[in-house]
Each structure stands twice: as structure tokens, then as C-alpha cells.
Design a protein around this nucleic acid. Structure first.
Length: 274
DNA sequence: TATACGTGGAG
DNA sequence: TCTCCAAGTAT
């Protein structure tokens, strides 16, 4: 077995993305499959679809200028709308991210962060809402960190009700039990092409390409195992060389350019060599 | 209000 | 190698 050494220039995701989609219009005009292709590997594929829909929205009606309008944009929720409205349009809307929720819970010794938005609206500096919101978020990111918070350098330590045991707030949500999933993946090559399929709506990775798989083994040699986790699902993919009955085939040279999730991408990289 | 979503890095 | 963790939106 001999290993080939090759020099690979890794182009960052953002650079590939911004080169292909330098403007809102270019993103709006792209087919969704291509948007997914450039997003592939990052996860949260619904975000890519929402970003694409948002671009089409902007191309059609322009950028919103208020919190309420931004909330209508696909993929934009309370935090993003509040951040944009306050930072770009000087509107006194809270921008409550995970950092701000943690600052709220500790400052007020609250087990739950559900009151964070009401609190943030109340302490808002209406003269400089964007700067205020960014300061709150930075306080959480740099001082009031999830672990080892730097209380001695905290500008509001003397007001803090949770300072004696900051890591108790907010109470962590109990972790879910893992669900173990085992599937058998078939690699089937005919005339230089590989059997593949696109994940359907309702399946994981909708619209992404993958190799055929099922819960029971195929008739073929197991050549490897790939492990993968999606939230609390621990997935073991056993890779087999097997014959499958399919009508969809992809040329080996095209596979690196298809939108694929990381597990099947790893399978393609590790097992399609021959 | 609780849960699903995908991945990579830290330990 | 394994386990744990992260942040925001949609539903």
C-alpha cells in the first residue's frame, strides 16, 4: 500500500462563496442546487435555502429598514432582526443572542433565560441601541463566558446577583439520550459511474446527494465504517461494495462537485478510489 | 414551549 | 476513539 502525497490548497468556504455569489442578485439568480453545493459541508442546510430565499426577496422588493420588516425575511428571527434594526437603523430593539441570555440569567440569578428579552428591552440605551446591544453581546462572549467567567474584570460585577456561582445560571437543559442508528451504505459502480440518490423532503439533508443505504446489510463486502452525529442521533454507516438497482448514476469526476453532507462526502473521499 | 437541525473542535 | 458542546430559526 503506497500513500501518495499531494499538495492541496484549501480554499476557505467564505472565499468560494463570495467569489461565486458576490452580489445579492447573483445569489438570487442561482439555482438552489448550486447554492447547496457551495454550502455543502457546513450543515444546517435549511439556512442555505433561507438565505437563498432571502436574496430573492431582497432582489424583488429591496432591503427592509425596520425590525418588523426584517422579521418577515426567511431565516431572519428575533435576534437577527433586532441586531440589524439596532446596528444599521438605530432602532431601540433588543438583540438577544445566547451571550445576552447568559448575562441576563447570571446578573439576575435566574435559572431560566426566558425573561432575557423583556429585561434587555428595559435596560436598552435608546440613544445608542446598536452599540449597546453589541456591548451586551461582547460582555457575554469575552467576560461572562459559559465556563470560567472572568468576574474580576467584569464591569457590572457589583450589580450581579449570580456572581458567587455564575456557572449555575442559567440551569443547563438536561441532555437527551442518544439514539443509535446503524445503516448499510452501498457503493455500486458501473461504467465509471456510481449509484447515488438525492435526499427527499423530510429526510436528513434534503436535496443533498448520498449513496444508497438501508437498515439491513447489502450483499457485498464491508469495506469500512463511517461514524457521524446529527444532534442526538449517533449514526454508524457501514460501507459495502454491493450491487444496487437504481436509475440515478453520477460520474466519479462529478461527485466532488455535488452538494453532499459530511458523512457521505467522507465516504466518497475514502472509498471511491478504485 | 420544546424540539430538530449538521458539523467540527476541545478535552 | 469517544463524548460533549455550541447558537439561532422554524415549527
Amino acid at each position: 500500500m503506497c500513500q501518495q502525497t499531494q499538495v492541496v490548497t484549501v480554499i476557505p468556504y467564505w472565499e468560494r462563496w463570495i467569489t461565486r455569489f458576490p452580489t445579492v442578485a447573483s445569489l438570487a439568480q442561482a439555482p438552489e442546487q448550486e447554492v447547496l453545493q457551495y454550502w455543502a459541508g457546513l450543515g444546517y442546510y435549511q439556512r442555505a435555502r433561507n438565505l437563498h430565499r432571502a436574496a430573492m426577496w431582497f432582489a424583488k422588493v429591496g432591503f427592509p429598514t425596520s425590525y418588523a420588516e426584517w422579521l418577515q425575511v426567511p431565516g431572519v428571527g428575533d435576534y437577527t432582526a433586532g441586531a440589524i434594526a439596532s446596528i444599521c437603523f438605530n432602532q431601540p430593539t433588543p438583540a438577544v443572542d445566547g451571550n445576552v441570555r447568559r448575562v441576563y440569567a447570571r446578573l439576575n440569578a435566574q435559572a431560566s433565560a426566558s425573561g432575557a428579552r423583556t429585561w434587555a428591552a428595559g435596560v436598552m440605551d435608546a440613544q445608542c441601541p446598536g452599540t449597546w446591544n453589541q456591548a451586551l453581546m461582547e460582555l457575554g462572549a469575552r467576560i461572562c463566558k459559559p465556563r470560567n467567567p472572568d468576574c474580576k474584570n467584569c464591569p457590572v460585577e457589583k450589580f450581579c446577583s449570580g456572581k458567587s456561582s455564575p456557572e449555575k445560571y442559567p440551569t443547563p437543559t438536561p441532555q437527551r439520550a442518544s439514539i443509535l442508528i446503524e445503516r448499510y451504505v452501498a457503493l455500486c459502480r458501473r461504467e465509471g459511474k456510481w449509484a447515488m440518490r438525492q435526499a427527499q423532503p423530510g429526510e436528513w439533508g434534503e436535496g443533498l446527494w448520498e449513496f444508497p443505504s438501508k437498515e439491513s446489510p447489502w450483499d457485498g463486502e464491508v469495506v469500512g465504517v463511517v461514524r457521524h452525529t446529527i444532534t442526538h442521533h449517533r449514526i454508524t454507516l457501514k460501507v459495502q461494495m454491493a450491487d444496487v438497482d437504481t436509475r440515478v448514476w453520477q460520474a466519479a469526476l462529478d461527485i466532488p462537485h455535488l452538494p453532499m453532507g459530511s458523512a457521505h462526502r467522507r465516504i466518497a473521499q475514502n472509498f471511491l478510489g478504485g
